[in-house]
Design a protein around this nucleic acid. Structure first.
Length: 452
RNA sequence: GCACCGGUCGGAUAGCGGCUAUUCCAGGUGACUGUAAAUCACCCGCCUUCGGGCAUCGUUGGUUCGAGUCCAACCCGGUGCA
């Protein structure tokens, strides 16, 4: 992996660059499509590519459970397995510590558990002061992840089996999955945790970062490690090959360390200072934020992190967050929102998000977003009917959602993914053209007022 | 005409004398940020100061402390026999 900065923002930490991987270039800042289980939900690779995607992110824990990282390895790595020829990344599984641990059953809307407060990746600031003074005692709350010094034990949501993931294990799995960029195993904490806990967790994350790095180097230097017990190669499986990350090339994956530290300035800065001295190829910025905390946290960290290495803001992706992150020196973003919102019927437009199932769209024969160039909004007539490049209408998409048709989620995901990826591309272009701040102001002016 | 069965929210249902009439669908409004999510929450008779208040099980009477539930008559629908 090689990262080159092409242009820097004059008043800010932002930059445009190129991240070269053995599966192609990523033009940064870039939005990474999330494909947790080696698929960008509801889209085939061609649709993912046509939406402008350059890189796809899979999830270590999910793929480890199903179909198993060794199957992915034997398939030739995640890219080959899912028939995606471009660059790939895998998350370490650290986020699952959060979503299956502290946040388990505490979604304010989902109310899976009868107690607890709403915790999500991006929280409402108003909730936090309520939570921190007396952190609710939920030590006996049901959760699928339990954290120890050495690693995290997960209870599989698929079959209830228990799995113990350590930094070493995460690295082994990720090397088997064979993505171009992989992440150190970390603990994503909830902003509702108190300072004492954040400190503890950060120490763990730092310790795990070092161990991830060591194991990563060991795996690079000893790629011919024997199979684990019970996996002895025999004559019935003669063609079974040992992992080389992404068949057809011998390059090792790049490893990114992850900065944590919650909303605490001292911890965030300590984390960046600790990690910058380690031999990582790039950095992730993790954690669950209050929206208002995000820009300060990103700024604190990116001032410290080495300029020449790429930074990935994990799991963030609303338009206003993208502007904020890029302005403050973030090169990569990934987020489930474009596809999840799409599948759930919320669509991005230049004037804000719309809920396509609302009554008013049932007879709205305009495009999802005026002037949008995505397949959904501007698909050519399939049989070449002269002059008919009409695109799908809001009324039609609304109809598909009301009718629970599979195509609904696909067309909506294509549009949303295109919208976000294209937005980041336009932001990148604005950096190259010295018009970032003008573009940001113009876009947000239109976007943040409520849509018609 | 006689006999039997049935009438519960827009549709379909549960209800076998006792707390707030159940559930599913349809409809409405939201939520979603390194995906336990093609998911979830709330509303869906009327009023409301969002605490709740008032109605309501085809209609009208009756029995009962208490009726969607039991009884009678009537109205509607279905089936059978004339």
């Amino acid at each position: 992996m090689h990262f080159k900065i092409e242009k820097k923002l004059k008043n800010g930490l932002g930059r445009a660059g190129i991240l070269q991987t053995s599966h192609g270039a990523i033009h940064t800042p870039a939005f990474v499509a999330v494909g947790t289980k080696a698929t960008v939900k509801s889209l085939n690779p061609e649709q993912v590519r046509d939406a402008g995607t350059e890189v796809v992110l899979g999830n270590t824990y999910h793929l480890y459970l199903q179909p198993g990282d060794e199957i992915v390895r034997d398939a030739g790595g995640i890219g080959k397995f899912m028939n995606w020829s471009g660059p790939t990344m895998t998350d370490s599984g650290g986020f699952l510590v959060f979503s299956l641990g502290a946040a388990y059953g505490k979604d304010p809307e989902r109310k899976r558990a009868s107690y607890g407060a709403g915790i999500s990746k991006v929280m409402k600031l108003v909730d936090i002061p309520l939570l921190i003074p007396d952190r609710f005692d939920d030590s006996d709350a049901p959760r699928l992840a339990k954290i120890c010094t050495d690693g995290v034990s997960f209870k599989s949501h698929l079959d209830g089996s228990i799995h113990y993931i350590t930094p070493e294990k995460s690295m082994q799995i990720q090397h088997n999955l064979g993505a171009d960029i992989i992440f150190a195993f970390d603990e994503c904490t909830s902003p509702t945790e108190d300072l004492r806990y954040q400190k503890e967790a950060l120490e763990r994350t730092h310790n795990w970062a070092k161990r991830s790095l060591e194991e990563h180097k060991r795996l690079i230097n000893s790629p011919l490690e024997e199979y684990p017990k019970g996996e002895v190669e025999n004559s019935s499986t003669p063609s079974r090959k040992r992992a080389t990350p992404q068949e057809g090339n011998n390059s090792s994956p790049a490893l990114f360390g992850i900065v944590q530290g919650g909303r605490e300035e001292s911890l965030r800065k300590a984390s960046a200072n600790f990690l910058k001295n380690l031999d990582f190829d790039g950095f992730g910025i993790g954690g669950s934020f209050a929206k208002e905390d995000m820009s300060t946290a990103v700024k604190w960290v990116n001032v410290i992190l080495p300029e020449e290495k790429p930074r990935h803001l994990l799991g963030i992706g609303e338009p206003e967050d993208l502007f904020m992150g890029i302005e403050n020196g973030v090169d990569l973003f990934d987020c489930v929102l474009p596809t999840r919102l799409g599948r759930n019927g919320t669509l991005y437009t230049k004037k804000g998000k719309i809920i396509i199932m609302n009554t008013k769209f049932r007879n709205d024969f305009g495009p999802l977003d005026d002037g949008c160039e995505c397949f959904t909004c501007k698909n050519p007539a399939p049989y070449g009917a002269e002059g008919s490049r009409s695109g799908f209408t809001r009324a039609y998409i609304a109809h598909l959602f009301h009718g629970k048709e599979m195509l609904a989620g696909t067309l909506a995901s294509i549009h949303n993914l295109y919208f976000i990826i294209n937005l980041v591309k336009k932001i990148r272009q604005s950096i190259l053209e010295d018009s970032f701040f003008e573009f940001k102001e113009e876009f947000l002016k239109g976007y943040l007022k409520s849509p018609e």
